[in-house]
Amino acid sequence: MSTPHPVTTVDLAETPLRDLNRTLHQARQGSFRVLNPRGAHAVACGIDADIAVEVHGSVGYYCAGMHQKGSVYVDGNASTGLAENIMSGTVRISGSATMSAGATGHGGLVVIEGNAGARCGISLKGADIVVGGNVGHMSAFMAQAGNLVVLGDAGADLGDSVYEANLYVRGEVVSLGADATEKDMRAEHVRTVAGLLDAAGMEADPVDFKRYGSARNLYNFHIDDIDAEVARRAG
């Protein structure tokens, strides 16, 4: 990461989390290195500027929550809600993330080099998520828009009640959820996956992925009208 600005180091063993986040919210540019997160929650959440943050160590819940514009890199693992509701920018971790990684993300890119737990990309609303390993059960539940790219396998009930998001899985899918179905992998989809792999810096052949999405059978209530039919028949 090269930048003309000096790197500011914040050691969470000495500095309260509040001070770290305040500093990050006030910064308009620059690079930051965070040491000793020791599983703290809400590390680097609410960033809204073109800054680069590197966290050395594992983080707790909601790291880089509601992230905008800049980049956050975690050299470690993350607990629940990594980059939840990300709007733009990039969040990347070298390890694995537990539940609800990238939940409700509206834009931007989340890269998980390891595995993601249950509900990865739940209610996704336009963000892209690339997972180097596997994703857990109920991933992309009710996902509305955006892409989930999984280089490994997907757990049970992938894409349950999915709307218009695209789910690309290279490995096995344990099972698809309600209203999810396998879809054609057309040229445009191969291009999308290639682009996302490239952005994530991951090696894989895009044609090896299968695409899943909504069968659109749950989009509207099925409403019968027997009275009208009887009236019609009676002429």
């Binding site: 986040n21 929650h41 809400a42 609410g46 819940y61 909601y62 929550g65 809600g81």
Partner: peptide, 14 residues
């Protein structure tokens, strides 16, 4: 979890 969520929201809005 809600306690952690509320803390996150407070952090985001300073």
């Amino acid at each position: 979890d809600l306690q952690i969520k509320i803390h996150e929201l407070r952090e985001i809005v300073d």
